[in-house]
Measured scan of single mutants.
Amino acid sequence: EAHFQVQLEQLRSMGFLNREANLQALIATGGDVDAAVEKLRQS
């Protein structure tokens, strides 16, 4: 989780407030914030 701290903060600042969902999306996308946003929008 600490590995994705910067990305988690970016997602939070973009309005994605579900930390667990954000973390799962980042893990699934290897930390790619843009891909994580797409994944979160689809769910």
Rank of each mutant, 00 (worst) to 15 (best):
I27D: 14
Q7H: 14
A35S: 12
L23D: 07
A25T: 14
D32I: 14
L11T: 01
T29Y: 06
H3R: 12
R12Q: 07
G30M: 08
E1A: 03
F4V: 03
V37D: 04
H3I: 00
I27L: 11
A21W: 05
R12D: 06
Q5L: 13
G15W: 01
A21N: 15
V33A: 07
F16R: 02
A35D: 13
Q5V: 07
A25S: 09
D34V: 06
L26A: 01
V33W: 04
E9F: 02
A35W: 05
K39C: 05
L17D: 11
A36F: 00
Q10M: 07
V33K: 12
G15L: 03
T29L: 06
A28L: 08
Q7A: 05
S13Q: 15
Q7I: 02
L26I: 14
V33D: 01
F4E: 04
Q24C: 06
L26T: 02
E20Q: 07
A25H: 13
L11G: 00
M14H: 06
F4G: 01
A35P: 10
T29W: 03
L8E: 13
D32V: 10
V6H: 14
H3M: 12
L8D: 07
A2H: 10
A35V: 08
M14A: 06
A25P: 00
L11N: 00
A25W: 06
L23R: 09
L8S: 09
L17V: 10
Q24H: 06
A36K: 00
E20T: 12
F4P: 01
Q42M: 07
Q5F: 06
D32Y: 05
N18L: 10
M14T: 08
V6K: 13
E20H: 15
Q7F: 04
I27N: 06
L11M: 12
D34F: 03
L11A: 01
N22C: 14
N22P: 00
E20R: 04
A25D: 01
L8P: 01
G31Q: 02
A28F: 06
N18C: 11
E38C: 07
G31H: 02
A28C: 03
F16S: 03
N18A: 07
Q10N: 12
L26Q: 00
G15C: 04
N18G: 08
T29D: 04
M14Q: 12
E38F: 08
T29H: 11
L11S: 00
Q42H: 06
R41D: 14
S13A: 10
F16L: 15
F4L: 05
Q5N: 14
A2R: 05
T29K: 07
S43W: 15
G15R: 06
G31Y: 13
G30C: 09
A21E: 15
E1W: 01
H3P: 05
F4N: 07
R12F: 05
A36D: 00
D34M: 07
Q42E: 15
L23E: 09
M14G: 05
S13R: 10
E9Q: 06
D34K: 11
